[in-house]
Design a protein around this nucleic acid. Structure first.
Lengths: 246, 246
DNA sequence: AAATTGCTTTGACTTAAGTCAAGACGGTCG
DNA sequence: CGACCGTCTTGACTTAAGTCAAAGCAATTT
């Protein structure tokens, strides 16, 4: 019997109410008093299922809402003026995303489902209303922005391929653990290409780093099945990179 | 007679009221109706002058306020676990900063004055109060967060030393221009070391790139006096890097 | 004005990571 | 099943940028 738990859509069907959602502690309602969570529930909508590769939103679209991953996972991708992609971040269940376009009022990234996925939708109007009526919600929004910030700054520094990769793995493990999964045994939701792009490495460099990590008995990986063999040594390799903010 | 205008503290002494501040359009009150600007005025405080090199806040301090540059300029610097610095951004007059610590409630960066500087201080309490009482202010805050985001993502991609440097210069020129200065002739407020660190280059690589830019008659630079000779070609060199969001 | 100090530039060399090219693997479909 | 396609891996080679070291320059101190 296979006890492996995938990041992918194995989460049990959620209730529509945040108060009953097992991801609530990591998502919109974190730290909100019950009354405000109720208000939030009224403003929230749930998306239809999206297939792997399907966009949730596209660059230049008007910003209509912000989102939280309900099941599955997403990447957000910026495109430069010549059409080259830059993966900006990955989003796992319970994580809020879609904040980066609120300045311009238009989306600055593509958001693409990596697997069959669903999101909770908080319409922009709801964000503003809740910010006024719900006393803790404004703060929660500022927190979400500031958290996003921190996580974008993580990989800004001058790190080697191996430091980046180790930190990436540790970050993943830490994000998956509180979501109730074994952190030592995961199914990657994203392709090698996406990881390489996110870490600003050539695909070949990533491949070689993975091979080295295996030779050093740090991990075991084939295809998207990843097992951590020595998480402490991995953590040590990535120690210079600031930790992922959960 | 020298018509050069420096980024440094040449701004005329501001009035305390945002409505009378020449930087208002780029700062907190951008797009706020007069009534809300008045509320803002009541919440705002002005700092004492800070000397070059003096910190406005330090990592791990509690977040008490957010700030706008009144005169002078600042850098924000993250420190990794081994004490290595990473310059996160530079802040010119009218620019709001200090948002990145709001998640944790403690500062995540050092903010250091690059010259003799002053800031406008919006206490955290004021941020929350205004978010409730002033209907446009919440939106303004979201904008400020989202703008910061965008500007952090700019240099995330895989750009060459020359692309980075060209884009950095163009960004500077564009930020200085609306502040009423000649964009072609500026005094850099930051050291080579800071620029190199910000662009994730070794100091020597920056020096060489500067030398090449001069040989190609793109710029003229000695010490911190910078003149743009061919801003269009510079813009073209940095075209892949997303533009600075003002 | 000479000396000290810290920043910046330049040169010579090294290296990590990128590129190019070939092959392997895995999944899909006729 | 075998052919096909895209993704991933591996090897050989190149290169942009980093490192080390020395010298130049500017600002400050005595």
């Amino acid at each position: 019997m296979n006890t492996r738990i995938s990041i992918a859509g194995v989460y049990p069907e959620h209730e529509h109410r945040c108060s009953e959602c097992r991801l609530g502690d990591y998502c919109f309602p974190h730290n909100l008093p019950p009354l405000e969570t109720d208000e939030l529930d009224h403003a929230l909508r749930i998306s239809r299922p999206l297939q792997a590769g399907e966009p949730l939103y596209r660059i230049a679209e008007p910003v209509r809402a912000i989102y939280a991953v309900r099941e599955g996972s997403f990447k957000t991708v910026a495109l430069d003026s010549e059409g080259y992609e830059q993966v900006v971040s990955f989003h796992l269940p319970g994580e809020v995303f879609g904040l980066e376009g609120m300045y311009a009022g238009s989306q600055q990234c593509d958001a693409i489902a990596l697997q069959n996925s669903r999101v909770c939708i908080l319409p922009y109007k709801g964000v503003l209303q809740l910010s006024h009526s719900a006393s803790r919600f404004t703060e929660r929004m500022f927190q979400l922005f500031s958290k996003d910030h921190m996580n974008h700054l993580r990989l800004l520094g001058n790190y080697s391929a191996e430091e980046r990769l180790a930190a990436f793995f540790i970050g993943l493990a830490e994000r998956i653990e509180p979501r109730g999964q074994a952190a030592s045994d995961i199914t990657l939701p994203m392709s090698r290409g996406d990881i390489a792009n996110y870490l600003r490495l050539a695909g070949e460099t990533l491949s070689r780093a993975l091979a080295r990590f295996q030779r050093q008995d740090l991990i075991q990986i084939n295809n998207r099945e990843l097992r951590f063999l020595d998480i402490e040594r991995l953590r040590h390799m990535g120690r210079r990179v600031p930790p992922y903010v959960l």
